[in-house]
Amino acid sequence: MASDAALALPPAPEPMRPRVLLVGTYLAAGGAFMAIMGLVGLYLSARSHALAAGTAWLPDGGQIPLTPSNLAFGTMLLSAITVTWAVDAVGKNDRAMAYLALGMTLLFGLSVVNLTVFLYKVSGIGVDTPMGLLFYVVTGAHLVMMIAGMVYVLAMTLRVLAGDYRGPNDREGVVAAAVFWYATVAAHAVIWLAIYITK
């Protein structure tokens, strides 16, 4: 009787691999995000003290133009969509869409690097002032985080190209890269508001 019941059961699902990479990425992304948040906190604190003391925060001749900073933020938001698209495409094992989405994410990342460098060129802010120092270190640290995220996405793109990751239960690396990228986008959102908008 018992053996009949056992025969009637569907086969056990394939055991999943432990999501080591995903858990590790969550932790690493959390750490990277906290580094940026700590720096943003220092920026806000220094600005608050300067304004309370009645001194100008933005140095003479310095400016943070809104056009490139808003474009950069918009591009980051778009990249969050494309990386989600990549995760979805890999889950459906739609290789063409996955390549396209991962490629666009990388392209958007490069665009934001370009926009940030352009922002540096036109801002006219020197590093020898408290504002300039914090501005460059905060945004520079985010650039480093973003480049790390792009390397991560690129590595996963190469793995997808090599034939890895082929379904909803086999896409851990792409999901992990997406998680890191989301943290990068979130950090950029805070920088955009705290530094580019409220200056």
Partner: peptide, 28 residues
């Protein structure tokens, strides 16, 4: 370990700040 991961990156950020400031402005 989670608390180290959440707090010590702030120290790295500060060290980066110090490095740039020490070599350029030395403001604070």
């Amino acid at each position: 370990a989670v608390m180290w991961i959440l707090t010590l990156p702030v120290l790295i950020g500060m060290l980066a700040l110090m490095y740039v400031d020490f070599n350029h402005a030395g403001t604070s």
